[in-house]
Design a protein around this nucleic acid. Structure first.
Length: 431
RNA sequence: UCCUCGGUAGCUCAAUGGCAGAGCAUCCGGCUGUUAACCGGAGGGUUGCUGGUUCGAGUCCAGCCCGAGGAGCCA
């Protein structure tokens, strides 16, 4: 019998097919069973009448437990009474394996309970929808860069020292007597790759050992980091706008079903077209102060500040020219305003906060060395990085985009923890 | 690390200092179009841990453990 996947079931109306999956839910009226089956690609209601199947089969279906793995053969029918518009009238049922006492019942559960059973929670319709949007976003990101001629050049996960020295890193024992650290950014290596290949991107996991306990933080998250040689801040902003708008358009186009499952208000995504509004740090500060937000001018934008700013616009907003003092050592100062960095943060709408951080890099050897010393970083660890300014230094820049924050925003979620199959957070390493 | 909130049946939650309960899940029975189906019945408890106040503590007090949200920091 033809094995078909549920997402293609509409192509088989009137035909007898087999679906292989798991029992998601079951209802019965005594002489007719309704089995909701999922197979990873979707959910399908199987109807089994008492007179349609052998008595043993009908009885087996009556006692079938949630998440038991089953193979069902039947005739595909169009039926408006079924969610999704199609149904399968069962002729045969094979129980592959019986599940007993599946812990995630059709009623509500607490977050802690669900996170302890994340390996099972991901079977839920809502969770599969999120993971499919994540998949689409990642593919859209890769396509965006690949189509523009960027070269994927991944950066190491074991690193010898802090990239920026400001955030906490996870130490790893590296053979006998050396300590390595899990990367917090591939950016420094990305700069070297850009000098070799012109325009590059790295895409991989990133680790932050900060004890952040908020809905925006994971200790392990995925980041895409493009870097361009011969580029200035405007080029970086244009690239960020192009990336974000194309990712949103792609998800709207390909994942309408999933966004509907998530009850996402897509009108808030349809406005995400270029150009994005740009705010100089000083303008951002003025908006905050005018709104009565107790903002400390000269400091970084906090979560509340980002929320207030992003709510002023119907699309992501680019905030530029932060004080150089609060930015990383490798940021290039603005020649017209040397206490400011040529940097940009992109804040997602609806209060979702920073999804992109980047800017133009410091390309002057002497100034870079001075900054390294000012930040009390060991210059010998950055010899290779300084080489990039010794041998053919050029203006260059790039940014990092956090995938999970992007998924959170596009899906309209409350928390990043649902955007990755197995979230790693402060106090959560299982499963 | 700091601030706030929480921990009671497998799950989600009730319970004025006075007999520890409901819905769902599970098991049994009923129902031929259900949509988190519904109806009837049954089983199910070390109220996070330790100590204290009290005739009496799920409830009040102290300490501890665990979790959530937020701050800082960041994508």
């Amino acid at each position: 019998m033809t094995h078909v996947y549920i997402d293609r079931i509409g192509e088989f109306v009137g035909q007898t097919v087999t679906i292989k999956g798991w029992l998601h839910n079951r209802r019965s009226s005594g002489k007719i069973h309704f089995l909701v089956v999922r197979d990873g690609t979707g959910f399908l209601q199987v109807v089994m009448g008492k007179n349609d199947v052998p008595e043993e089969t009908f009885k087996a279906a009556d006692h079938l437990s949630q998440e038991s793995s089953i193979i069902v053969t039947g005739t595909v029918r169009e039926d408006q009474r079924a969610k999704g518009g199609y149904e399968l009238t069962a002729h045969a049922l094979e129980v592959v394996s019986t599940a007993t006492d599946y812990p995630i019942t059709p009623k509500e559960h607490g977050v802690d309970y669900l996170l302890d059973r994340r390996h099972l929670w991901i079977r839920a319709e809502r969770q599969t929808a999120i993971l499919k949007v994540r998949h689409e976003i990642i593919n859209a990101v890769r396509d965006f860069f690949n189509h523009q001629g960027f070269i994927l050049a991944d950066t190491p996960i074991f690193t010898p020292a802090a990239c920026e020295g400001t955030t906490t890193l996870f130490p790893v024992q590296y053979f006998e007597d050396e300590t390595a650290f899990l990367t917090q950014s591939g950016q420094l290596y990305n700069e070297a790759n850009a000098m070799a290949l012109g325009r590059v991107y790295a895409f991989g996991p990133t680790f932050r050992a900060e004890k952040s306990k908020t809905r925006r933080h994971l200790t392990e998250f995925w980041m895409v980091e493009p870097e361009m040689a011969y580029a200035d801040l405007n080029d970086v902003i244009a690239l960020a706008e192009g990336l974000v708008s194309s990712v949103v358009a792609r998800v709207l186009d390909k994942r309408a079903t999933e966004l509907k499952v998530l009850e996402r208000d897509t009108s808030k995504l349809e406005t995400v077209t270029t150009p994005f509004p740009r705010l100089h740090y000083d303008e951002a500060a003025k908006i905050l102060l005018d709104k009565g937000v107790p903002f400390q001018v000269g400091g970084d934008l906090g979560g509340t500040d980002e929320t207030v700013l992003s709510q002023q616009f119907d699309r992501p907003v680019c905030v530029t020219h932060y004080p150089a003092a609060i930015k990383a050592f490798y940021m290039k100062p603005d020649p017209n305003q040397p206490d400011r960095a040529l940097c940009v943060d992109v804040l997602a709408p609806e209060g979702y906060g920073e999804i992109i951080g980047g800017g133009q890099r410091l390309d002057d050897y002497d100034l870079l060395l001075q900054r390294i010393k000012e930040h009390q970083l060991p210059p010998e660890a950055f010899e290779w990085y300084l080489d990039l300014r010794r041998y053919g230094s050029v203006p260059h820049g790039g940014f990092g985009m956090g995938i999970e924050r992007c998924v959170t925003w596009i899906c309209g979620l409350e928390h990043v923890r649902e955007t990755i199959p197995y979230p790693r957070m402060l106090y959560r390493l299982y499963p």
